[in-house]
Simulated assay, not measured.
Amino acid sequence: MSARKSCYRLTVEEPRIRSVVSDGKTRLQLPDEFGQCFHDFVELEPGLGLGRLHYRPSVRLIEETNGPHDGRVMVITLGLKGRSCYEGQDATSLQFQKGYTTISTFQGSPGERRYEADETVSQLRVVAQESLICKYIGRERAADTLGSQQLSRLAFRASTPAATAHANALLSHLLPCNRQLSRLDLHIHALSLLNEQLSLLAPQHGASSSPLSPADIERIEQARQMMDEHLDKPLTLDYLATTVGINKNKLKDGMIYLYNATPTELLLELRMTKALTLLETGLRVSQVAWKVGYKYPNNFTVAFTRYHGKSPKALFGKRLSQP
């Protein structure tokens, strides 16, 4: 690969490096000349898999794919860092972005994944085959959910606090610097993620309809996005409601309905998720505390430890510069 190339297309035939990392995890990695680009995957049980994608290509990269899964599957992708996209040969497309959950179903969909140069993309993926989905929700609901198209985008929405919490727990198994989860814990978190998304996509017959209009949902998600983008600012519920144009009580109730969290709980979830990401980059505790809205590092450390179960130093002691 020429270093002067501004873009490189990696075909299906070109080599990928496959290796066993540890504890049943396999890694599919691109050659070093493309930068740091790999995907770790572990099968939790027949029909249910967990993957972590980490790409930081040295050039703009277009990676051709035929779809690596046998049979029809649902893939739940939680964006952790950066953004990327997928373009199918049938003109369908998928977007993946930090803070958002993308749900797709397909069966061998040829297309291409696109990544920008020198930008880190990190994603957590739960892969469920049709047989497993039928096992838990029945063939009729599974058929309604999975559809029959070659590739379908079922959802692209802000990740709920519950989904983010399960993702963080699963990452503790996939990231080498963190603790390893038991097999039972892995199943619980992965199936909880799957259950949440299936409940939103294919509610059981007789379930009550949403009390929120599409316009309400859009405004509530705008408010959540504002919180996420201004974690260092003391945004009040009144300010958020006025800015997005919604009643304060409806905003509060809507967050509970959509994210299963009060505004205060949601803010804490966003802060702790952001803090984990920043600490992974090697920032000092005092810097991270300020960026996520804590005036005093000690207060941040207490909140982080209570939320994640371990202190920043316990999780990142070997990489963390001291304040």
Rank of each mutant, 00 (worst) to 15 (best):
K5H: 08
E13R: 14
S19W: 04
L30G: 08
L30H: 12
P31C: 03
D32W: 06
E33G: 00
E33D: 10
G35Q: 06
C37F: 11
H39M: 12
E43K: 11
G47C: 06
L48I: 03
L50V: 10
R56N: 09
S58H: 13
S58A: 14
V59E: 04
I62C: 11
N66K: 13
P68A: 14
P68S: 13
P68F: 12
D70C: 01
G71D: 05
L80E: 06
G82W: 10
S84P: 03
S84V: 07
E87R: 15
S93C: 03
Q95G: 06
F96R: 08
K98Q: 15
S104H: 04
S104F: 03
S104L: 09
P110F: 05
R114Y: 02
E119C: 08
V121K: 08
Q123L: 15
L124I: 11
V127Y: 02
L132V: 11
K135T: 10
I137E: 01
E140R: 14
R141N: 09
S148P: 00
L151H: 08
R153I: 13
R153L: 15
R157C: 06
R157F: 08
T160S: 15
A162Q: 12
A162V: 14
A162R: 11
N168T: 05
S172P: 00
L184P: 00
L184D: 13
A190C: 13
S192F: 12
L194T: 05
L198D: 01
L198N: 02
H205I: 09
G206V: 04
G206P: 08
S208V: 13
S210W: 07
P211F: 04
L212V: 05
E218L: 12
E218R: 13
R219N: 03
E221A: 02
A223K: 02
L235H: 07
D238A: 10
D238Q: 08
L240T: 03
L240C: 05
T242S: 11
V244Q: 10
G245I: 06
I246V: 15
N247T: 00
K248S: 12
K250I: 09
D253E: 14
I256A: 12
N260Q: 15
T273R: 09
L276A: 14
T277S: 14
T277W: 08
L278Q: 13
E280P: 02
T281C: 11
K291M: 11
Y294P: 00
Y294Q: 01
K295V: 07
P297Q: 07
A303Y: 00
H308I: 12
A314K: 15
A314R: 13
F316T: 05
G317K: 07
